[in-house]
Computed example of a mutant assay.
Amino acid sequence: MRLPPGLSGDQLTPALVDSTLSFVRENGEVVAVTLDGKRLWHRATQVEFLGSPAFSERRDTLHLATAAGRLVALDGGDGRARWRGKPRTDPGGAPAQTLLMRHALSMVYGYARVEVASTDVGRKG
């Protein structure tokens, strides 16, 4: 598959979610494309340095997190922001890793230490 125009591999963190590829740029932009390269949507989250997304089929929501533990939830269909949480610690460190288990979203984040936080994906933040 060729990347859609405007996307280059050195700017992106890709993730395969169901049959959609989601690309996350360091500047907080998220682009969703089909497996044949057709762009579905593009959104600027206003939150930089997001890690790879986790997808909740039940809520049709893409969840992303920062190294500071800030969560962002995007609509899976069109990418609009559903909600944004607040940072849980000072910025810094590697991008957060997110994992969805049942209805709990867990993330590993932090700089000087690693922390794990979970939230019910049906609630904000």
Rank of each mutant, 00 (worst) to 15 (best):
residue 2 R to M: 10
residue 2 R to L: 10
residue 3 L to Q: 09
residue 4 P to S: 06
residue 6 G to L: 04
residue 10 D to Y: 13
residue 12 L to F: 07
residue 13 T to K: 12
residue 13 T to E: 04
residue 13 T to D: 06
residue 16 L to Y: 01
residue 19 S to G: 09
residue 20 T to W: 02
residue 20 T to E: 11
residue 21 L to P: 01
residue 21 L to R: 07
residue 23 F to K: 02
residue 25 R to W: 00
residue 25 R to I: 00
residue 27 N to I: 01
residue 29 E to S: 08
residue 30 V to I: 03
residue 30 V to C: 07
residue 33 V to I: 14
residue 35 L to A: 12
residue 36 D to L: 07
residue 36 D to I: 05
residue 36 D to T: 11
residue 37 G to E: 05
residue 37 G to H: 09
residue 38 K to M: 10
residue 39 R to K: 15
residue 39 R to G: 04
residue 40 L to M: 13
residue 40 L to G: 00
residue 40 L to I: 11
residue 41 W to A: 08
residue 42 H to L: 05
residue 42 H to V: 00
residue 42 H to Y: 04
residue 42 H to T: 07
residue 43 R to P: 03
residue 46 Q to D: 11
residue 47 V to R: 00
residue 47 V to S: 02
residue 47 V to N: 06
residue 47 V to G: 04
residue 48 E to C: 02
residue 49 F to P: 01
residue 49 F to Y: 05
residue 50 L to F: 04
residue 51 G to T: 02
residue 51 G to W: 05
residue 52 S to D: 02
residue 52 S to E: 08
residue 53 P to H: 10
residue 53 P to E: 11
residue 53 P to F: 03
residue 53 P to Y: 04
residue 54 A to M: 09
residue 54 A to T: 08
residue 55 F to I: 02
residue 55 F to G: 05
residue 57 E to S: 11
residue 58 R to I: 08
residue 58 R to K: 12
residue 58 R to S: 12
residue 59 R to D: 08
residue 60 D to K: 06
residue 61 T to P: 06
residue 61 T to M: 11
residue 62 L to N: 04
residue 63 H to F: 15
residue 63 H to Y: 15
residue 64 L to R: 06
residue 64 L to K: 09
residue 64 L to M: 15
residue 65 A to S: 11
residue 66 T to L: 02
residue 66 T to G: 09
residue 67 A to R: 03
residue 67 A to K: 04
residue 67 A to F: 04
residue 68 A to Q: 07
residue 68 A to S: 12
residue 69 G to F: 03
residue 71 L to N: 07
residue 71 L to F: 15
residue 72 V to G: 04
residue 73 A to I: 06
residue 74 L to V: 05
residue 76 G to A: 11
residue 78 D to T: 12
residue 78 D to G: 14
residue 78 D to P: 06
residue 80 R to S: 11
residue 81 A to E: 13
residue 81 A to M: 10
residue 83 W to H: 14
residue 83 W to R: 06
residue 83 W to Y: 15
residue 84 R to Q: 12
residue 84 R to W: 00
residue 84 R to F: 03
residue 85 G to T: 13
residue 87 P to W: 12
residue 88 R to L: 14
residue 89 T to K: 03
residue 89 T to I: 10
residue 89 T to V: 10
residue 90 D to Q: 14
residue 91 P to G: 10
residue 94 A to P: 01
residue 95 P to L: 09
residue 95 P to A: 12
residue 96 A to G: 08
residue 96 A to Q: 00
residue 96 A to Y: 00
residue 97 Q to K: 07
residue 98 T to D: 05
residue 99 L to I: 15
residue 100 L to W: 08
residue 100 L to I: 11
residue 101 M to K: 09
residue 102 R to L: 12
residue 102 R to W: 14
residue 104 A to Q: 13
residue 105 L to A: 06
residue 105 L to F: 03
residue 105 L to S: 03
residue 105 L to Y: 01
residue 106 S to Q: 12
residue 106 S to L: 15
residue 106 S to Y: 15
residue 107 M to I: 02
residue 108 V to Y: 01
residue 109 Y to V: 07
residue 109 Y to A: 10
residue 110 G to V: 01
residue 110 G to T: 08
residue 110 G to P: 06
residue 111 Y to S: 14
residue 112 A to G: 08
residue 112 A to P: 03
residue 113 R to I: 02
residue 114 V to A: 13
residue 115 E to Y: 08
residue 116 V to R: 10
residue 116 V to Y: 08
residue 116 V to E: 13
residue 117 A to F: 13
residue 118 S to K: 13
residue 119 T to I: 13
residue 120 D to C: 03
residue 121 V to F: 13
residue 121 V to K: 02
residue 123 R to Y: 09
residue 125 G to I: 01
